[in-house]
């Protein structure tokens, strides 16, 4: 990363972000009986041309976080700033202008493309919403360019989504996201719906694009190997909170939170000679309900190292920093 990028204000910043979904009982007289704390106090920053990976298991709140970061959903408390602006304080046209700078690639290339639109219409649709982006006369050329950028044949622009393979459809989704030349691309599980042999194509494409276009990326995934491969920094989420964050090297070489280490231990390595022994420590149980998170440290119910203090004392809020912060009361020292 260049020094100027270090000092420039972050492209995306979340501060003490929470999103609680009310749980109600009764039909006519709805009573609020609790809340699902999907996102519960998250701080993070994404700098220009940087890729941040958010890794966590299902139910940890990573997709709720994605919609908050994209200003598709209002936080219960806390703030999001995109390029220094608070999206929720903006008027309609101002918000629309801001949205040009942040775009999203979705998980499922089968449901995220309109089956009745051609490839060219799908990729060109953002120009209908942002007519100022590209003059009408140039749009055809720009669509062809975009298709080429993502490795699709521009002569296939009149084809419909069902005439493309899964990998090609995901490329269409990426071309659409790039149409307005965003500065940040948020990818929510961009390859998990694809065949193994096709995933690498899309991962390499994203890698090339972020370098060539100097794009900032937020990559949300359950797959540690995917996140490790693509990201400069990694944040590990558990039950609505970030439990550890650091550079890729810090997280991968010296994970300090027991949950991060458990994720690494559980991820199977495709090499039978490196098979984990059958007495290796495994996490017990499942993710607790985010409607009734455990007291103290949220990970303590599954943590092999939990002590009495973990039961009573809430963990510190993780401020985003470069010093590899972890929310554990007793962070692990070296890899064992």
């Amino acid at each position: 990363m260049s020094p100027s990028a270090e000092t420039a204000p972050p492209l995306l910043r979340a501060t003490a972000l929470t999103r609680h979904f009310p749980v109600t009982e009764g039909v006519l007289l709805k009573r609020r009986t609790g809340a699902v704390r999907a996102v519960d106090g998250i701080d993070l920053t994404v700098r220009r041309a940087e890729t941040l990976g958010i890794v966590g298991e299902s139910g940890c709140g990573k997709s709720t976080l994605a919609s908050l970061l994209m200003a598709l959903d209002r936080p219960t408390s806390g703030t999001v700033t995109i390029d220094g602006q608070n999206p929720f304080a903006l008027s309609g046209p101002e918000l629309r202008a801001l949205r040009r700078r942040v775009q999203m690639v979705l998980q499922d290339p089968y449901t995220s493309l309109d089956p009745r639109m051609t490839a060219g219409q799908i990729v060109g649709e953002p120009f209908a919403i942002h007519p100022g982006a590209v003059p009408r006369a140039d749009r055809g050329r720009r669509v062809a360019e975009l298709l080429e950028t993502v490795g699709l044949d521009p002569t296939h622009r009149d084809r419909y989504p069902h005439q493309f393979s899964g990998g090609q459809r995901q490329r269409l989704g990426i071309a659409r996201a790039l149409a307005l030349e965003p500065r940040l691309l948020l990818c929510d599980e961009p390859v998990s719906a694809l065949d193994v042999s096709v995933q690498a194509q899309v991962l390499n494409l994203l890698d090339d694009l972020r370098r060539e276009l100097r794009l900032a990326c937020v990559l949300i995934s359950h797959d540690l190997a995917v996140v490790q491969h693509l990201c400069d920094r990694i944040a590990v989420m558990y039950l609505g909170k970030i439990v550890e964050t650091g550079t890729r090297e810090q997280i991968c070489a010296t994970p300090r939170h027991p949950y991060t280490r458990a994720l690494f231990a559980a991820a199977p390595v495709p090499d039978p000679r490196r098979r984990a022994p059958d007495d290796a420590l495994l996490l017990e149980g499942d993710l607790p309900s985010p409607a009734a998170p455990p007291s103290g440290c949220r990970f303590r119910t599954r943590c092999p190292y939990a002590r009495p203090q973990c039961l009573t004392e809430p963990t510190l809020r993780l401020r985003d920093g470069t010093d590899h912060p972890t929310a554990c009361h007793f962070p692990l020292e070296s890899t064992g």
């Binding site: 096709v198 690498a200 190997a225 490790q228 991968c252 390595v269």
Partner: peptide
């Protein structure tokens, strides 16, 4: 070559920073 291609195209935790060599096309 298909098996070899699969092995070369998966990101691996034990090979930090190794480039992926995808198989072209789709099944």
């Amino acid at each position: 070559p298909y098996t070899r291609g699969l092995l070369d195209s998966v990101p691996r935790l034990d090979r930090l920073g190794k480039p992926l060599v995808p198989i072209t096309g789709s099944p």
